[in-house]
Design a protein around this nucleic acid. Structure first.
Length: 112
DNA sequence: TGAATGACTCGAT
DNA sequence: GATCGAGCCATTC
């Protein structure tokens, strides 16, 4: 399992690379890792990230439509949108407004 | 060991 | 254009 942990480490590293005021999607991270089909694993990585001592800005990671699908996994269901709002984002109906504008694609920004 | 689940995504109807 | 179903990979019970 330790080897599999590297996958999480990579996910965490990518999430930490997300600049403030920008967000990305699980599929984008999975695609960057070369496994866009493993988007679910990214979600699991976020779940495990909460256990990690590292502070993973999981609130900057949403599904492909900018919906806060994982807000319910935070300490409080509103913590995710609260943090996003604190970074200057606008949330409407648990969805990020202008998601296309704030979308941050690691495979493009990091120019792998 | 086997089966079920999950913070997703894409394709088909 | 919108809705429904199947797929994929790793972890957990």
């Amino acid at each position: 399992m330790d080897q599999k942990r590297d996958f999480y480490q990579d996910v965490f590293q990518v999430v930490e690379q997300i600049p403030v005021g920008r967000v990305t999607s699980y599929g984008a991270i999975a695609n960057y890792l070369g496994a866009k089909r493993s988007s679910r694993l990214v979600g699991w990585a976020m779940n495990t990230s909460h256990k990690s001592t590292l502070s993973i800005p999981a609130h900057r990671v949403v599904n492909r439509i900018g919906l806060l699908s994982g807000k319910m996994h935070f300490s409080t269901p509103t913590e995710m949108e609260e943090k996003l709002i604190a970074e200057g984002h606008q949330i409407s109906n648990d969805q990020i407004i202008g998601f296309d504008k704030v979308f941050w694609d690691p495979s493009v920004e990091l120019t792998f």
